[in-house]
Design a protein around this nucleic acid. Structure first.
Lengths: 128, 128
DNA sequence: CAGGATCCTATCGGATACTG
DNA sequence: CAGTATCCGATAGGATCCTG
C-alpha cells in the first residue's frame, strides 16, 4: 500500500466499477500481479524467491504489489520471527479462486503471444 | 499508438515476457482494454457508442486504447467515407479467441468484487 | 533476508480546444 | 462524428542507500 490515507484510488466503493470486468482487472492487472499469483499457484514462496522468479522486478515494486494482493485478500503473508528473517507468501482460499483465470491467461499467452508480436510489427510497418 | 518510433516498449520481442501470463496481460491489461473488448463481444460498435459504454473514458484514451488493440490484431476498424464520418469497431477472428477469457474476468468480478472491497477496507483499518 | 526510505523519471491518463 | 493536438498533474515504476 502506498499510504494509509483514504484518498487512495484503491479504496473507492464498488460503484467505482462501471463493469465487473474492470473490477477483476483492478485486482490482477498491472505489470506483475498476475505473474506473482501464477508462481504462487504451486505453493508458498519466500520474498527473494518471488523476486528471482519475476525477472527484473525491483524490491520496491515486489513489496508494493504483495501488499496490495494481501490487502485484497488474495495472498497471505506469514512472518517467521527468526534471524535472518523469513517471510512466506501463499495464496489464501479466496486467492485460489483465481486459479482457473490465471491458468487461462497463461494458456492464451502461450498460444497467441507470437501472433500478437507479429501483428504489432506489421501494424508499425504499415504506418510508415 | 503513441508514436511511430521504435523505442515504444510495445515493440520488443517475445523474449520481453518472462512468463506468458505477462504477455496476455500486456494485451488485455490497462484500465480500459478488457472492458472495451467486453462490449465488442456482442457486435460492432461506433466510437461514441464505446465512449458512452466506457463510462468516464476520455476521447484521447479511447483512441489510444483502440489503436493498440488494432495493432495487436484484436479489433478491426472500419471507416465509412461519409459525412458525418462513421467508424465501426469490431472484434477480429483473433480477437474472438479472447471471448472465454473476458467472460471469465466478468464472471469473477461479478462474484467477488464485493469481497475484495470488504477485504481492502478491513486491511486499511487494521493498519490504523 | 526482507524489507523501508528517498529520489527520480517515464508513462498514464485527464482537460480543453480544435478540425475534416 | 470521430477524431488530433497540446498541456498538465498523478501515478507507475526504477535506482540507490539503509536497517532490524
Amino acid at each position: 500500500m502506498k499510504s494509509s490515507n483514504n484518498n487512495d484510488a484503491r479504496y473507492f466503493s464498488i460503484d467505482k466499477y462501471s463493469c465487473s470486468v474492470e473490477a477483476t482487472i483492478d485486482v490482477i492487472g498491472g505489470k506483475w500481479k498476475s505473474v506473482i499469483i501464477y508462481y504462487l499457484l504451486d505453493g508458498k514462496k519466500r520474498f527473494n524467491e518471488l523476486k528471482r522468479l519475476n525477472n527484473g522486478i525491483t524490491q520496491r515494486m515486489l513489496t508494493l504489489q504483495l501488499r496490495e494482493l494481501e490487502a485484497d485478500g488474495i495472498i497471505h503473508r506469514e512472518v517467521y520471527r527468526e534471524v535472518p528473517p523469513k517471510v512466506e507468501y501463499s495464496l489464501t482460499e479466496f486467492g485460489q479462486e483465481l486459479r482457473p483465470l490465471i491458468l487461462m491467461l497463461k494458456s492464451w499467452g502461450m498460444n497467441n503471444t507470437e501472433k500478437v508480436i507479429e501483428n504489432r510489427s506489421k501494424y508499425t510497418n504499415k504506418l510508415k
